[in-house]
Simulated scan of single mutants.
Amino acid sequence: MTMNIKKCTLEDSRELQQISVETFNETFKEQNSPEQINAYLERAFDLKQLEKELANCSSQFFFAYFNHEVAGYLKVNTDNAQSEAMGDESLEVERIYVKKKFQKHGLGNHLLNKAMEVAMEYKKKKIWLGVWEENENAIAFYQKKGFAQTGAHSFYMGDEEQVDLIMTKTLI
């Protein structure tokens, strides 16, 4: 069993789109209407949108490989790419997604460690993320990793407003 992480480039945009749609559907399809899911997928994972994000020097994407297959991915943001104004000392983990069949193999842990590594590289003092208030598994995972709820913000699934808890961890 081998696990490794690779930074994504513009050439990875189609594969990034595929895994984004697949993992988002696996994670949220059961609790949301098809109309709202599809509206979100079309906006967030449109190829041109992903290419724009890949080209932004304040955002980075990483693929996680499990036995040479793309099993998940990470997106981190700094500076003005953050989805909330958290300042220059913060790094946002915007997305950590792992395909269902690869969950429980430590990939989420590896991706979160990669995010912390990037934060340290950029000399950030805090790492933060938004997690859907109903995603209890993710909330428990982040709490176990030392994150604490520091706020909340709106997240739009299509045109339906939902609440994401903002969870923050101070880095030493």
Rank of each mutant, 00 (worst) to 15 (best):
S59D: 02
I172Q: 14
F24R: 00
K124Q: 11
N56K: 04
Q49W: 05
E15D: 02
E35T: 08
M1H: 03
G146P: 02
I37E: 02
T78N: 02
S90C: 12
G130H: 04
E89K: 15
H153P: 11
N113K: 03
G130P: 12
K125F: 11
D79P: 05
I166N: 05
V98H: 00
T2P: 00
A138W: 06
Q149S: 07
E69D: 14
E84N: 15
Y122V: 09
V118Y: 04
D46M: 01
G158P: 12
K75G: 04
G87Q: 12
S20A: 05
T170N: 13
R14D: 02
V70E: 10
A44R: 08
Q82C: 05
Q60A: 14
F155K: 09
H110K: 14
Q162Y: 11
I19H: 00
A55K: 12
N4L: 11
G151C: 13
V21A: 03
P34C: 00
I19E: 01
F24H: 08
Q60S: 15
E11N: 08
K123W: 06
S13F: 08
G108I: 09
Q82R: 05
L111F: 15
I139H: 02
M86K: 15
S90W: 01
K101A: 13
A81T: 03
Q143L: 01
I37K: 00
L171I: 02
G130E: 11
E69Y: 06
N137D: 14
D46I: 13
F102E: 00
W128F: 10
D88G: 01
E11H: 11
F102I: 07
N67T: 10
A44H: 03
E136Y: 09
G108T: 12
Y142T: 12
Q60P: 10
S33R: 13
S90L: 08
Q31F: 09
Q103G: 00
M157Y: 01
V131R: 01
E30F: 01
E30Q: 11
Y122W: 13
K29M: 09
M167F: 10
E15R: 01
I139S: 02
Q60F: 14
F28P: 00
L54N: 04
E84S: 09
D46E: 14
L112C: 08
M3L: 02
Q49R: 13
Y156W: 15
